[in-house]
Design a protein around this nucleic acid. Structure first.
Length: 217
DNA sequence: CGTCTTTGACCCGCGC
DNA sequence: GCGCGGGTCAAAGACG
């Protein structure tokens, strides 16, 4: 399973109580986090003083994953990442799936009517990493359900949904056009289950930290 | 055969 | 009303 796993100061002494450190709180609910001291590194060259870890089960041992941008709390409908505004015109079909009847024959119009209420409640956050791979192993199983070309970005945006039954967490993955080594990952929602396998990679850690920070359970 | 990806079509919100 | 952009659906195909 998680062979080749290497840990780093962050995980050996997780600063859970103090993490994340606020740099500044902006007006539109954007929260910047200082990752300077917890630079996450995945590199088979473990000489790195910042230490590192490898994605579980990944064959790409030479990958380097590094958080390069601010983590953004996107509990608001719109948010921006490095000046690129992202709007969440989320059409929820969704939490209705999670808690109610099996036949998800909810009409699109019905979905749209609930949209505005729900999208304000949805837990969303995004972060940027520098990575060669788009999809990082965070211990959950994801099913891709769409891909779209987005404006002002030559790279498509991919849409994923957690495959666990009843769990409606989604994530979007997209590379920046101006720096294709940077991957922007946006999570939406909360998992209703445990991770599917043991993994300690940094994306999982990030999610946990963000959830703790947001007071999720 | 089950699971996942691909991809065009469709839907919706929004601005004009 | 119309067009655009973003998000989702679902059929078909790929893959192990």
């Amino acid at each position: 399973m998680d062979n080749q796993m290497m840990f780093f100061p962050f995980s050996s002494s997780p600063p859970l109580s103090t993490f994340p450190h606020h740099q500044q709180q902006q007006s539109n609910d954007i929260v910047n986090f200082d990752f300077g001291s917890v630079l996450l590194h995945a590199n088979n060259n473990s000489s790195s003083s910042t230490a590192g870890l490898l994605p579980a089960g990944s064959a790409t041992s030479s990958l380097q994953h590094e958080i390069v941008g601010e983590m953004v709390n996107t509990n608001v409908a719109g948010f921006s990442i490095n000046g690129t505004t992202t709007t969440s015109s989320v059409r929820e079909n969704s939490s209705s799936q999670a808690n109610s009847d099996d036949n998800n024959t909810v009409s699109h119009k019905q979905m749209g009517s609930d949209l505005q209420k729900k999208k304000a409640k949805k837990h969303r956050f995004a972060f940027q990493t520098r990575s060669q791979v788009d999809i990082l192993d965070d211990g959950y199983r994801w099913r891709k359900y769409g891909q779209k070309a987005v404006k002002n970005n030559q790279n498509p945006r991919s849409y994923y949904r957690c495959t666990h039954q009843g769990c409606n967490v989604k994530k979007q993955v997209q590379r920046l056009s101006k720096d294709e080594s940077i991957v922007v990952t946006t999570y939406e929602g909360m998992h209703t289950h445990q991770i599917n396998k043991c993994t300690d990679n940094f994306e999982q850690i990030l999610m946990n930290q963000m959830q703790m920070y947001n007071g999720f359970n």
